[in-house]
Design a protein around this nucleic acid. Structure first.
Lengths: 210, 210
DNA sequence: TGACTTTTGTAACCTTTGTTACTGCCCACG
DNA sequence: CGTGGGCAGTAACAAAGGTTACAAAAGTCA
């Protein structure tokens, strides 16, 4: 664990902090598709990502979903931070997008470390900053873009995060994450295929050039 | 200034911090409609709101606007915080919604105070939390609600922030903030009037019951 | 193989939202 | 007092996206 920790967080954290993380943090692996956090659940630990990716989803009262953003290695979940400190319930759902390795830090260390370690403080602020920027980006997409543009952006984000130009998703799954209907996604994907930007197959989409 | 500061932040901040703020902070008044921050501008100070309200707007590359949320007394701007620490440019526009009193803190104090004062740290985290929650709320609105619901929510937020059930806005101004067209706003407002929820007048909307 | 399920393609239609165009109204100001 | 500019009402139309329905293709499994 300490090995992987250092690979990802070593220039960032001072040694004393790394040692503390090693002592207190709990190493965990989650498989693709596994749920890490559900809406309304109490938050007891915050994750530091070592590898893989986690998608963060929002849901409204009718059960309609929307993908907010992805977390990748070196990231942590600002929502979790936020909820920890406020002792409130989670506002989001977190699902592993890939097989993921992470270290869980119990929340009671949060307050202590933010006082004690400057590097931790910077990390936490940096995380908040990143997440705010990602939320802004999400808002830009849903407010200013039409569905075809949003879909394109979705495909781009997906291949970036999985590092694979073949996307293993059904149209229905994409529709959920963009909060639209399967028929609309199929329609727009077919357009993209006709433009030669993608190649459609059952359960997968090969991205050619977008 | 110290008077007003204490009224709003006294239970929150320890005395030593209040004294520092008094020494270093710059008291400022901005009139309704005045611009406090423009997109792309560098951030050199963060505001602590004493009274009034500030609206935070996002703009896309075509100049289309969207209202993100309001800041009120006791609030500070997490975007500013965020930008300060990262030394980056502002991603948002800030405009006074009402006549507003605030104290500007130079950003170089940020890092120092977050290390030194626990109460400041909590305040900053609390601010990030609030702003993240407001961003989530904004996302919910634009992703899950139809325009009529969004308009209703807009009117509710507006009367809450101004503490006045008469809204002094033109349909065009509302259209900008919701990122839609004037005709659509007029249409939906007329519906609300027919339902007896509001009374329309030139340059103002009287909210009766929503 | 054959029955069944899941996924995708597509047409037809509806609703919501955006656009254009024109009208009348109110108000400020010369 | 009249005229010009900003504001609001409305109709007619266009475009985007959502819904329903159905069929075909692909996979699954007994």
């Amino acid at each position: 664990m300490i090995q992987k920790l250092k690979e990802n967080y070593s220039p960032l954290f001072e040694d004393a902090l790394l040692t503390e993380i090693e002592k207190i943090g709990v190493y965990k692996e989650v498989a693709e598709g596994e749920k890490l956090m559900e809406i309304g659940q109490y938050v007891t630990a915050m994750p530091l990502l070592i590898s893989g990716a986690i998608k963060i989803l929002r849901e409204d009262k009718d059960g309609d979903e929307l993908l907010l953003y992805f977390l990748e290695k070196g990231d942590t979940c600002a929502m979790t931070l936020s909820c920890c400190l406020g002792q409130t319930k989670s506002e989001i759902r977190a699902v592993a997008e890939l097989d993921t390795q992470l270290i869980m830090i119990p929340i009671n260390k949060m307050e202590e470390w933010t006082g004690k370690y400057k590097s931790w403080r910077n990390f936490v602020f940096e995380s908040y900053h990143s997440r705010l920027m990602e939320m802004l980006d999400t808002i830009d997409s849903i407010a200013f873009l039409k569905m075809d543009q949003r879909l394109l952006k979705y495909l781009q984000d997906k291949i970036k995060v999985t590092n694979d130009d073949v996307i293993q998703s059904t149209h229905q799954e994409i529709a959920y994450e963009l909060h639209t209907s399967r028929v609309v996604v199929s329609r727009l994907l077919k357009n993209l295929e006709n433009l030669g930007k993608i190649k459609l197959n059952r359960n997968s989409i090969q991205v050619i050039s977008i």
